[in-house]
């Protein structure tokens, strides 16, 4: 039975090229309706994995299923259900934007051709450049045309390989907003180097490094997994000092700084049991002015660095 909850299942997939292994036993899942972040440093195997998912490159071993169908099975219809924007958008530079999108739509057998082309051109603000040659467009517009190509046949699953790479800040913001809106109707696998971008856009992530998956799942779960002990941010009135907290367990104060009129301390307890209630009462009983007491999650960047550095 098809589990439509998981739009993509990558099961133990490996890909070898002559003399090197690009990815090894990669497994992860993408839930329907999510934006799934795919992270990894350069050469980690992200693009290879994405090309395999899109059906451009078969795995040496393992299996990939999209919408319950095997990607490398005899199912050419599946090709219309996956949209890919590769790192280098496949653009015919000597074609006009409109003709190019018509061409791609025809390749996918789109029936209401004019309507679909108009729709993507409107959504991606390409109407003004519709008759211009792609080769004469700016990088931002070229990237929009590349994205339009992946959307013109209305595939329910989109793979975007570093779509905001090398674009100016305004285009990046516009594209991010558009991707966020797209996620209301589609499932998106999204790779990026920009970690705050992934944190903003994605609810699920997979971190790949040296061809292996290092972490995968819900962003909160991953945060929890990589949290070492309990990290608390404690804010006291300016000039007040933190008393001895050793009776709550072994701890370490990692940072101390002034934010406005508040003295903030980052305290890590080795034991991750939530002791905020008792700690709050204790600090007040010491006569201190407790202004902030909250659990701090590690930044995605910290997790990313931890994952990609420790397992080298």
């Amino acid at each position: 039975m098809i589990n439509i909850d998981k739009i993509l299942v990558v099961d133990n997939v490996s890909r070898e090229f002559p003399g090197r292994k690009a990815v090894t036993n990669v497994s992860f899942e993408v839930k329907q309706g999510s934006i799934h972040g795919f992270l990894g440093p350069n050469g980690a195997g992200k693009s290879t994995t994405m090309r395999m998912i899109a059906g451009l490159l078969p795995p040496t071993s393992g299996e990939i299923t999209v919408l319950g169908e095997r990607v490398f099975g005899d199912n050419s219809n599946l090709k219309n259900k996956i949209g890919l924007l590769p790192e280098n958008a496949p653009l015919f530079l000597d074609m006009s934007v409109e003709k190019y999108l018509h061409f791609v739509a025809k390749l996918h057998g789109v029936k209401n051709l004019n309507e679909q082309v108009e729709r993507v051109m409107t959504e991606l603000s390409l109407i003004d450049v519709r008759r211009r040659l792609i080769g004469n467009l700016s990088k931002g517009y070229k990237q929009r045309v590349g994205l339009a190509q992946a959307l013109v046949y209305d595939a329910p699953f989109l793979i975007l390989d570093e779509p905001t790479n090398g674009l100016d800040p305004q285009t990046v913001v516009e594209l991010r907003d558009y991707i966020r809106r797209l996620a209301l109707q589609k499932t998106i696998l999204f790779s990026s180097h920009i970690l705050p971008e992934v944190e903003q856009l994605c609810d699920q992530i997979t971190i790949i490094h040296q061809g292996r998956v290092r972490a995968t799942g819900n962003l909160t779960e991953i945060h929890k997994k990589f949290r070492q002990g309990l990290v608390l941010k404690i804010g006291l009135k300016m000039g007040e000092d933190l008393p001895d907290l050793s009776h709550f367990g072994k701890y370490d104060v990692t940072q101390e700084h002034l934010v406005g009129k508040e003295q903030q301390f980052h305290v890590i307890f080795e034991d991750d049991a939530d002791c905020r209630s008792e700690l709050g009462k204790y600090l007040i009983s010491c006569g201190l002015n407790l202004l902030t007491l909250q659990v701090e999650s590690p930044e995605l960047e910290d997790i990313f660095l931890q994952v990609t550095e420790t397992k080298k």
């Binding site: 059906g55 219309n80 890919l84 590769p86 496949p90 390749l107 996918h108």
Partner: peptide, 13 residues
Amino acid sequence: RLETIDLFWLSPT
């Protein structure tokens, strides 16, 4: 070289 050939392989062509 330009990887535009992928357009064909991404479609049912």
